[in-house]
Amino acid sequence: MNYFQLFGLVNQFDIDLANLSTIYQTLQKQAHPDRFAHASSQEQLIAVQKSTEINDAYQTLKSPLLRAQYMLELRGVDMPSEQASFGDVSFLMRQMELRELLAEIKFANDTDAAIFEASVVFETEFEQLFNQLQVQLTENTTESNAQACDNVRKLKFYQKLQVELDKLEDALLDD
């Protein structure tokens, strides 16, 4: 049973997150190990495993990037290892520029404005790749799945940029 089936959902990229959360809570209640307190140790073990599976499924389906990656796995797309280097030169050049933009924020006269500007740039570029990803996943051809795979990897760099921006914002607030 895959995660979509476990949650009684159609295997598609667009998900209603509120609905997902409701299903999660219902499933978790049914499988809660406390309900099996008086059951045999075998049944208790199964309940714990079920509960863990429901949790893993929820975490995967909730996050758009993990969901996309999971869908590609289900389609048998060969995802490069997490550790494999990425070599798209123009994309990486852009990442360098964005990292430089991030590094310059603390020297700006108005750091709040600089943070805001950076977040708009990051978000715009993220959205663009994300919208492409949506289309590619829906298309579901060998070619579009390969492109989706590439886009998931690219989006991870934007996730990292956002984390760095948040860190910077916290650090500047502390000063």
């Binding site: 997490e82 494999a84 990425f86 990486l92 990442q95 991870k156 760095e164």
Partner: peptide
């Protein structure tokens, strides 16, 4: 040479200055 690691979002640029006889005279990174 530009490479990146999606797992951690790291980006690396390595530049080499190479002489006509193929020896690396200088190297810089970011």
């Amino acid at each position: 040479g530009m490479v990146g690691a999606p797992a951690c979002g790291d980006v690396m640029k390595l530049q080499l200055k190479i002489s006509d006889d193929g020896i690396i005279e200088d190297a810089k990174f970011k």
